[in-house]
């Protein structure tokens, strides 16, 4: 369940990064549709955070330690909303670059999360 979500978040995050990258390439700011995309990725990341907590509560333990796992879960959940917030007040192509960078950071965090959980 957690692994499936990790893959899903990573893939949608990369798609979002590419989408906003195209917007930046076309010299466009982020638009409503982009924000809907960010919301979808954020909801998936939130689901991952909740599932991760449930797994911990069930007594399952990540390979590389619980503190690091929780820190990465929170970081993964916060990254896209934080980038979205920055792009709200930057109505140029650079707002799109910021969201794109935020999504790439999320994808990297997912790879690390996969390692930290192990199995």
């Amino acid at each position: 369940m957690l692994d499936a979500l990790t893959v899903a978040v990573a893939v949608t995050a990369l798609a979002l990064a590419a989408w906003c990258g195209i917007a930046a390439y076309r010299d466009q700011p982020t638009k409503d549709w982009h924000f809907i995309g960010m919301a979808v990725v954020s909801v998936l990341a939130l689901a991952q955070l909740l599932v991760g907590i449930v797994q911990l509560a069930r007594g399952e333990r990540p390979d590389q330690g619980m503190t690091i796992f929780i820190a990465y879960l929170i970081g993964a959940f916060a990254s896209v909303p934080a980038a979205a917030f920055l792009s709200l007040s930057e109505r140029t192509r650079w707002g799109s670059v910021t969201v794109s960078a935020g999504a790439v950071v999320l994808a990297v965090l997912e790879v690390r999360l996969y390692d930290i959980w192990g199995n």
């Binding site: 503190t67 690091i68 820190a71 970081g75 990254s79 934080a82 980038a83 920055l86 792009s87 930057e90 140029t92 650079w94 707002g95 670059v97 910021t98 960078a101 935020g102 950071v105």
Partner: peptide, 23 residues
């Protein structure tokens, strides 16, 4: 402008380095 992207990356690295060292 381009500085917004830098704000994002420096913000991320502040959080990353700070949480890493604290943990």
């Amino acid at each position: 402008g381009p500085g917004r992207v830098l704000v994002w990356f420096y913000g991320v690295f502040t959080v990353a380095a700070a949480s890493r060292s604290i943990v």
